[in-house]
Amino acid sequence: MDDSGFWNRLDLLARSLFPFVASALLIIIGFAPLRAPEIAPALPLFGMAAVYYWCVFRPDLMPHWAIFLLGLFSDLLGGTLVGSSILAFFALYLAISSQRRFFAHASFFLLWLAFALFALPAFFIMWSLACWNAGAIITPAPSALQYVLTVAVYPMIAWFFGQSQQAILQSGGRG
């Protein structure tokens, strides 16, 4: 057990926590007050885009417990029914893990398209659970808008994570 080995491992651990921490930060940023309801009555769900990105590119760094914690965090902070974001994130996770072969070779555009496709059931889960919780049908329009916004911000999030993946994860000795 030499000293450099320990520090190396600590460094590696910190780097491998990056996807989780960055996703949690994105969830927090999603709740920052923009005070512009006339521009965006609903903000995109950054957390969902983040979970999708890491599940596709580094599933080893976005294990199921991390997805559970991120969903729980999002629900507790956002005030939504606890469990609804967890289930929505898991829907995304399961969809991706069932199509591993497709994701291994997909181009950016295809990945974006797949996100638009897979996020749909995830949003539907959140909406139906919110309706169940409220005991009434909630107007689906804001939810639909949030879905569109979330799909629209995906390229930005993917770009940001792509850059940081190169800077933080690959310089850590793991590809």
Binding site: A32, P37, G79, M126, P140
Partner: peptide
Amino acid sequence: VIADVRGPFLHSV
């Protein structure tokens, strides 16, 4: 006001 959690399902800050 430090957080705006006005989403499709709830309106609170």
